[in-house]
């Protein structure tokens, strides 16, 4: 309490004491007196100095500390990357037009966040090189999957195509591998985003988003709508045989995500069904009118 070194660092008296408390890897020095050693410490040190294995364990401690620090940095970055990706996805959900440039205001936000995300990846790149690339895979995987979801969604909105694995790693530093597992799991989540995009567009514009005919001649893409794309994704996912990795993470995750994915596609199918059934009676661009709405309408087939 009365110790001045607690809050006022005077370089000569406090440096060693303060450091040895906060940084376990720092060798303790006693030149400045053992006064920073609180009640319990001396006992441990007496015991410690008598053990012949101390140098070995000190070495282990330093190594493990490094490992835990790296691990924590990766976890933190992964969380930040996840958050940035989610925000990008939110911004992109405001896009209404498929297969065209993203409106400037949204593109600006996306670009800003992507830059932040790239910076995050760059900071942990040294922690994920060589041997360690796979060591912290479980920690970074969540962030990469979310990143995958954002990148593939953006790519889809621009080109109405599924981004290939090689292209999706363009924002990642070279040393960080994009694993097939993370790619697949990210694409599974993309289905959910496409569902939201389709449903929102149907609700606001009254039509299913599809590549506009005017652009079909510039692009090789024929006129397709989101539902067709969702169905081809679903078909590809269903063909994917993951039974061989039942024990590992991918097998379990795929099983769960497969159900969610199917439900998403069905939601869009139902929405399109509603659009066809009820849309029959109104011309394109029809805006609800209070008078018209009240008039009793019966569906023809009933």
């Amino acid at each position: 309490m009365g110790e001045p070194s607690d809050d006022r660092p005077s370089p000569d008296s406090n440096l060693n004491g303060a450091k040895s408390n906060s940084k376990p890897g720092f060798k303790r020095k006693y030149e400045n007196g053992p006064r920073d050693d609180k009640a319990k410490k001396p006992r441990r040190d007496v015991e410690a100095s008598s053990s012949p294995f101390m140098p070995m364990f000190e070495n282990f401690r330093d190594e493990l500390d490094e490992h835990h620090d790296r691990r924590e940095r990766v976890i933190k970055a992964s969380r930040d990357i996840t958050a940035a990706s989610k925000k990008i996805i939110f911004a992109l959900q405001r896009v209404r037009k498929l297969n065209s440039e993203i409106p400037e205001s949204i593109a600006g936000e996306v670009l800003g966040r992507s830059k932040g995300m790239k910076a995050q990846f760059d900071t942990i790149a040294p922690d994920l090189t060589g041997l360690n690339a796979w060591r912290y895979q479980r920690q970074i995987s969540g962030g990469i999957q979310e990143y995958m979801e954002a990148v593939s969604f953006e790519h889809y909105l621009r080109n109405q195509r599924l981004i290939p694995l090689e292209e999706s790693s363009r924002l990642l530093p070279e040393t960080i591998p994009l694993t097939g597992d993370d790619y697949v799991l990210g694409i599974f989540d993309l289905v959910g985003e496409l569902m939201r995009f389709a449903i929102t567009t149907i609700a606001t514009t009254g039509s299913l988003p599809s590549s506009s005919p005017s652009e079909t001649d510039e692009n090789t893409v024929g006129s397709r709508d989101v539902l067709q794309d969702l169905r081809s994704l679903r078909a590809s996912f269903q063909a994917l045989d993951t039974t061989s990795c039942g024990g590992t993470g991918l097998g379990k995750d795929v099983e769960k995500k497969m159900e969610v994915m199917k439900a998403c596609v069905e939601k869009v199918e139902t929405a399109v069904y509603g659009l066809i059934v009820r849309g029959r009676e109104r011309p394109k661009g029809w805006v609800p009118d209070l008078l018209d709405d009240r008039a009793p309408v019966t569906v023809e087939s009933y």
Binding site: P164, L165, Q228, D229, R231, S232, A235, A239, D241, S244
Partner: peptide
Amino acid sequence: NVSETGMLDPRIFEDLQRKIDDDA
């Protein structure tokens, strides 16, 4: 046919399957 001209390149999922099989 749809997937060949459509949204996704069938090679994407072929590659993925190969990765999974190699891994196994």
